[in-house]
């Protein structure tokens, strides 16, 4: 009898838990946004710049995660789209005098088209072949940006310098603070869109294609359409991040868009958790902060430890794949589930 009654009460408790989880979810987002909004007033100028970078990485990682995590198309070359976004903004601002804010959507659209077009050959390339092609893309990008025939526009090896925009409407913000809020607004918008995208019909189609393309096709999903569109949208996200990165850093230069940038993105989504929207924030914090702290440790150990952050990256990549393939998001989910079971157990008991 005791067992049966427990089973009866367990049910409503579970439903309640579902509702409260959603409530906590909303509260969490609100608190995070509020925290993010106060942050630039609480820390120094350099930290504001760093957190802008974190937001930028979060957007870029979100783009990559839509493609690789949700849709299962491996990209080792998303640094290229980041570069296209950054250069679109820089060229529009420096060479054509377009206002800053207007360049962000343009960069997004340019990258969407570039990604969509790259998505076509990608259609024919499953798994590792796509990894190969994008690997080549990542390695070739800095060389292409330095190419003599286009250096009138791209500024060659030096790249292009941008001056950071002033806060409009006489707002009492420093330039870094203003850019931080621009990044925050873009991040919030893109996250909201992505969360809705993956929750709905399109998101399910993306995951279905990842899990079993043949079954997905049999269920009437247009694989070519979804794959190329996902590539385009993914590039759009990363391109917008690149555009903002050009503004925040005040410079775009070929060698900052090399293979190791694409690699950082991959590290970011693996650390944050593949196919996770919120995990990419953890990933972004990781790829922004770990190299900095590793550098400080390296300084203590001496000059030859310059390679240390990358060694850490490498070990982490393999270690995470081995022990925690779901990344930070998966770990949090597991903890929440266990806590939920504990509280449910104590209530019914």
């Amino acid at each position: 009898m005791a067992g049966a009654s427990q089973r009866l009460t367990a049910r409503p408790a579970g439903v309640q838990a579902g509702a409260s989880v959603r409530m906590w979810h909303r509260l969490g987002i609100a608190a995070a946004l509020a925290g993010a909004a106060v942050l630039p007033f609480a820390v120094s100028g350099y930290r504001v710049y760093q957190f802008s970078q974190v937001l930028i990485y979060a957007m870029a990682l979100l783009g990559l995660n839509l493609l690789t995590g949700y849709n299962g198309q491996i990209s080792l070359g998303h640094g290229a789209f980041f570069a296209i976004g950054g250069y679109t903004t820089a060229i529009l601002v420096v060479k054509l005098g377009v206002p800053y804010w207007a360049t962000i959507p343009v960069a997004g659209i340019v990258c969407f088209v570039a990604g969509f077009l790259f998505g076509f050959p990608a259609l024919r390339l499953g798994g590792i072949y796509l990894a190969l092609a994008t690997f080549a893309l990542a390695l070739a990008t800095p060389q292409l940006l330095k190419f003599k025939a286009v250096d009138e526009w791209t500024g060659g090896v030096q790249g292009l310098l941008l001056s950071k925009p002033k806060a409009p409407f006489g707002l009492p913000l420093t330039r870094d603070q203003w850019l931080y809020f621009v990044c925050l607004a873009c991040t919030a918008l893109l996250f909201w869109a992505a969360a809705n995208l993956v929750r709905g019909r399109i998101g399910r189609a993306m995951v279905a294609i990842r899990e079993h393309p043949v079954a997905a096709e049999a269920m009437g999903i247009d694989i070519a359409f979804y794959k190329t569109m996902t590539f385009g949208v993914s590039a759009l996200y990363t391109g917008i991040a690149g555009a903002l990165s050009g503004m925040v850093a005040g410079v775009v230069a070929p060698d900052s868009f090399g293979f190791f940038l694409s690699l950082s993105f991959l590290v970011g989504i693996v650390v944050g958790g593949l196919a996770s929207i919120w995990g990419v924030i953890a990933g972004a914090l990781f790829i922004e902060l770990v190299p900095i702290y590793a550098d400080q440790i390296a300084d203590l150990l001496g000059e030859s430890a310059k390679a240390l952050p990358w060694a850490i990256y490498g070990v982490l990549l393999i270690g995470l794949m081995y022990m925690m393939p779901t990344g930070a998001a998966g770990a949090v989910r597991a903890v929440v589930r266990r806590l939920g079971r504990l509280t449910a157990g104590s209530k019914s008991g």
Binding site: G127, I128, L266, G314, L317, I318, M321
Partner: peptide, 13 residues
């Protein structure tokens, strides 16, 4: 495949 690619990239680094 994705996992293996990531492991190889880890080795590369």
């Amino acid at each position: 495949a994705l996992t293996v690619v990531i492991v190889f990239i880890g080795l590369l680094v």
